[in-house]
Nucleic acid binder design. Structure first.
Lengths: 339, 339
DNA sequence: ATGAAAGCGCTAACAG
DNA sequence: CTGTTAGCGCTTTCAT
């Protein structure tokens, strides 16, 4: 039952019912008796104001979008969970879309989200550059916070990892263990986080005077299969690396598989540092030394930032920089040894 | 820009613009010239009919809900991805909610989804019984397809695994390998899939004349931690089991950890069969023999079924039973050996 | 082939 | 303290 029917039933005006049911009874000084009557009847017929009518009128949907490249990736599913949890406290629902790491799909999903006039969007872009997306966002009035990857020339706030630092961290860890011939397995040549991580790693490598063999920097995808192919290539080099850093995703599983195929013992014959902590990181053979991102903190910042952009701005909300850059840290386990 | 502004700009009526932009130009025999004019202008100002107005008028939201207990669980995130992909082809967006395995939250999320008048809901309930939920769904007019767990007395179609069969399968696999003292690690005493799987396993165990020691059927949670606790209990028994079946979730990781702590070699000292294939199943030590559910098929059935319930029923859509029960199969790897 | 007008369910400004 | 009214943006019937 909708609120006008309810009003009719009670023989009072819709406005009054609306005021009671949307929690503005006090503000309009509705009498206790009517408040009770309305509440009781609403309960009885379980009548709730239709959010659709309300949204059309107020222009507010109480819904934000979450656009991620791969919900199957634990990094994003954990992010999604944390974000939804926090948003729920503010009465916001989450419209999820998964672009499947595909720019064309991403473009399409973004337009439908913009068209839907959501209250805001938390956007983790596909790694590769996508000009359409930047333009679409700039032309829209919807508050957007960008996550994981910062898109240049976009005037929306972003939450991201200091990928340069993270890459450096991984390489330095290996260097400190005595490695000099270190390979990096990339997800996508064009992908921002990977590129930065690679740059960071190379800076560390150069600073330590390591070899700079282009053959050591390879990779073409985030999947386990891509990791497998890359690792095979690396391990069949005349002079294979003594350590591999996987710059993203599930590729590490491919590395483990390749090592297994080649009877290569980790960490004795090959050390490995993997980007992104995963639920299973501690349980593969051997337990992995990983570079971990502060997911919960990212979710918190993204939501807080987005809510602060929402109108009317949620009062009393902490404000902070428009470009939050967080630091990763290394979780040491047993996949790194001296060469 | 919305379509009335567009109409004003073109000096024609909103109706006409609406008819063109919602693809009904032919139906209303709009002239080619106006069609072109409207299309061009819409393109230029990138004007799209506001879905909100449209929804209010038609009562259709082009949005379905997906309510899962834990998006972080690969079973559900893969399901979510597959579902969203298929739904997108039908122009439907997905409103995701995660109940965090909590009935109270689930109740709340369900009500808001029902209130939002979505076009339908795909619902994977929390494992424990939740009467409020059944009542809410029965009282609603929204098409609901239940997934993973069937709720009794709910007149909506369901897609589920034959959990009894799956439990049997796991136990028989172990029995065939020569095991007679087999433990089952449960997620939740009250949870439907677990209970059925347990029942199936016990049937197989009884049929094979195995011992029926209550101490062997333990467990209290889906998390790795719960699995760890349960496994410790099991392994410290005076006569520990020679094999463990984990009936659900991440518990298996806890078993691996407990075995590790106790210097127990898998599969030599202890065999293990794990429910639910995971991305890492092949890569832990040792690679796990798992019971795998046909996720893609479940997603396909759920979406097809839901669309067939949607009004107007999507024509040409295959129809099938209201209680689809799918079969699991075993993926043999290396975590099972003769005792 | 197109326009006018009603109405989906709600909220908020205005009027008492 | 409560009612009346207008209008959010759209689709659709009815009229022409």
């Amino acid at each position: 039952m909708n609120i006008s029917e309810l009003a009719q039933h009670l023989d009072i005006s819709v406005s009054t019912v609306s005021r009671v049911l949307s929690g503005n009874a006090a503000k309009y000084r509705i009498s206790q008796s009517t408040v009770k009557r309305v509440r009781a009847a609403a309960e009885k017929f379980n009548a709730v104001p239709d959010p659709l009518g309300s949204s059309l009128r107020t222009g507010r949907l109480s819904m934000i979008g979450l656009l991620v490249p791969d919900i199957t990736n634990p990094f994003f599913s954990e992010l999604a969970r944390a974000i939804e949890l926090r948003l729920r406290d503010s009465g916001m629902a989450v419209l999820l879309s998964d672009s499947a790491e595909d720019s064309a799909i991403e473009n399409h999903l973004l337009s439908t989200m913009l068209a839907r006039k959501l209250d805001g969007l938390i956007f983790a872009p596909v790694g590769t550059t996508n000009d359409g997306v930047a333009a679409a966002i700039r032309n829209s009035v919807m508050p957007v916070v960008t996550l994981d990857r910062v898109i240049p020339d976009l005037n929306s706030p972003s939450i991201s990892l200091d990928n340069l630092h993270a890459g450096k961290l991984a390489a330095e860890h290996l260097i400190a263990a005595g490695h000099r011939r270190i390979a990096c397995l990339r997800g996508d040549d064009d992908a921002f986080p990977d590129r930065e991580r690679l740059r960071g790693a190379q800076q560390a490598l150069n600073a330590a005077g390591c070899e700079d063999d282009p053959a050591l920097f390879t990779g073409d995808g985030y999947s386990r299969e891509a990791g497998l192919a890359g690792a095979r290539r690396l391990l069949s080099l005349t002079r294979p690396p003594t350590a591999i850093i996987t710059l993203s995703g599930q590729g590490i599983l491919g590395v483990l598989q390749a090592a297994d195929e080649g009877q290569i013992e980790i960490p004795d014959d090959l050390s490995v540092v993997a980007f992104d902590e995963q639920p299973w990181s501690a349980f593969v053979n051997p337990p992995l030394t990983t570079v971990v991102q502060p997911i919960a903190e990212m979710a918190r910042l993204a939501v807080t930032k987005l809510l602060s952009l929402t109108s009317p701005p949620n009062p009393g909300i902490e404000d902070f920089s428009d470009e939050e850059v967080l630091l990763a840290h290394i979780h040491e386990r047993q996949s790194v040894a001296r060469p």
